[in-house]
Design a protein around this nucleic acid. Structure first.
Lengths: 332, 332
DNA sequence: TTAGTCTTCGAAATCGATTGCGTGGAAAGT
DNA sequence: ACTTTCCACGCAATCGATTTCGAAGACTAA
């Protein structure tokens, strides 16, 4: 631990702690000469203010917290990358909490964050989160909160996300235009905002081409073995899909695995597209067409908005609900 | 912010703050009845001690910091997953800092962490880190430090890593045994400990089969375009490799891309293996044989050791240098 | 010269929790 | 009955930085 304190500095300089503190913070009420003396010694002794003392006094932690369901996920990693970039440039520190898709854990973490440890929180909710009580309760305590990606429409908080509906519609249309008639949508938990939006885009596209009757939506959960079974099943149906749209990277991988195990040939048997931020998707066999989400930008934007809230700046109307477009990369 | 303070609690209970504090911490010098009263009201009022006040008083932040070069990397994500798991179970908080492979940034972050913001630090050094001055300086301040994966042999600090040498040797041997005579090793910065260890294993295997003269080591850096060029070049040589061993996931992906662009056929032209924690490696075309590092376990183990240091427990001799074996998954 | 204004700095309170030390009263020992 | 011990709790200092209030000295204006 850094042992030099303001008091020690003050003694060596024959000044009071208040003067030293002011000098270091460039207060106008301190003479230039004194400032220079103080700063010189502070530098020499490598003085660093104790963050806990500062935080206690100023009611400010210079820290933000990021809550995500999991981290072994390209999307969330990229988000954190963006967040950390902005935070570091602002001199803020970043706390990471994983909820592991558990509503109770999410609630508990938010509860603990009410005590001032963080000046603001960014969250992408877990897939077991079916209400916003914990978020509302958190907001009541007056701590800035920003939602990203997996948002909650009903909550009055800034949200940063991608154009799930539009891009899902475009992707589905591409499948249709390349000849698919029976496109299955492999979704994650239906209660997630992103699931709803992506399904909506999928349905809109089907509707546009009058294919609603062929809609097949498989809802997957947290158990990969079960997901595999669910996905296998659709191939064994009497009317198997000729196109597949998976809502996440992981589901795409599982689908590929199912194909492998059942010796189903891609893309001869069906065409596929997925939401995924994996650069390696191009190397899959066959190459996977992907919807690349602007994860890094989402992280940067969400963090920037959070800092605006923390600094009590007023948000532009456009910042209350930011939508950053995804990009469809066709590969097969 | 949580507004209930000890003082307010004390007033409502007609007790002193000291008694309330002790009651909440289950001190033996407080009567059971009083404890119950205090705890009941604390619970009712959702009292949470101010972390900055506690930290200031106790010289303890209940926080650890993790420094990594980048986060968009399956390995580091998995490490963090392990770290967070252990930290959360111990009631600790986790700060994340990205050095972006920059020695100066690494130095600066470590410098800032000397002030007590974190009780301990875990680090995997950047590839531009060529000395350990900053780490030594950090240690001098008495803050527990644990190195993982990209370690520094010369530093006297606990290290957690995988069996790079052995597994690299095994992987190289597999290539040799499957007929490869000219195996190229695509490495990252040579000054990284893991590079050295992996190259060592590679060389040992070549030596065992008397193939040293065929050793080709390509050192790649941070610039992907340049790396691509370097890798392309070896294929255009008069004696192109019939086996490739890449030291990281990213280099494997780049190599695949090079093959694609140059229409080189895998695995007919050469066989390949790589360090990689990407579950999707099985879906590559052709499937990539990978060395899967125990990233999650490394994270857990490093964190556990760090907590032992923080709690001033003495480490077992085996904990000063922990090696967790990787796993070779053959796929092509 | 005197009142008024700046400039520069210090004393002390403050943030909120923790803790060393002290104390009143009850119980116990002689 | 008197001393001792113990229990349960309060007072006040403490952690280290920030900030309010004020004050001494220099300087200007009248």
């Amino acid at each position: 631990m850094n042992n030099v304190t303001l008091k020690q500095l003050a003694e060596k300089l024959n000044l009071s702690t208040s003067t030293v503190s002011r000098a270091l913070r460039d207060s106008h009420e301190i003479g230039q000469e004194t400032k220079d003396r103080v700063k010189a010694l502070a530098k020499k002794l490598k003085f660093q203010p104790n963050p806990h003392a500062s935080s206690l006094r100023q009611h400010k932690s210079n820290t933000i917290a990021v809550l995500i369901p999991e981290i072994e996920n390209t999307f969330f990693s990229q988000v954190i990358n963006g967040v950390e970039l902005v935070a570091q440039s602002k001199g803020y520190h970043v706390l990471i909490y994983l909820t592991h898709e558990d509503y109770n854990k999410e609630t508990e973490i938010l509860r603990l964050l009410k005590n001032g440890r963080a000046d603001g929180v960014m969250i992408s909710v877990s897939n077991t989160t079916k209400n916003t009580k914990h978020l509302q309760s958190f907001q009541k305590d007056g701590i800035p909160l920003v939602l990203f990606d997996r948002t909650c429409d009903e909550l009055n908080a800034p949200k940063v996300m991608t154009d799930d509906i539009e891009i899902a519609m475009i992707a589905t249309e591409k499948l249709i235009n390349s000849g698919c008639k029976r496109i299955a949508f492999i979704s994650m938990s239906a209660n997630l905002s992103i699931s709803k939006r992506r399904v909506k885009g999928y349905r809109q596209a089907l509707q546009k081409y009058d294919l609603q009757k062929n809609a097949v939506i498989i809802e997957c959960g947290g158990n990969d073995a079960e997901n595999k079974k669910k996905i296998s099943k659709i191939f064994k149906s009497s009317t198997p899909p000729d196109g597949i749209f998976t809502a996440t990277e992981k589901l795409a991988v599982i689908t590929y695995e199912v194909c492998r195990e059942n010796e189903i040939k891609l893309p001869r048997t069906f065409k596929m597209v997925s939401f995924s931020n994996l650069p390696a998707a191009a190397l899959f066999h066959p190459p996977l067409s992907t919807i690349i989400q602007p994860a890094f930008e989402i992280g940067k934007e969400a963090a920037s908005i959070l800092f605006k809230l923390i600094e009590k700046k007023t948000l532009l109307p456009t910042e209350k609900r930011v939508i950053i477009p995804s990009q469809l990369v066709e590969r097969n």
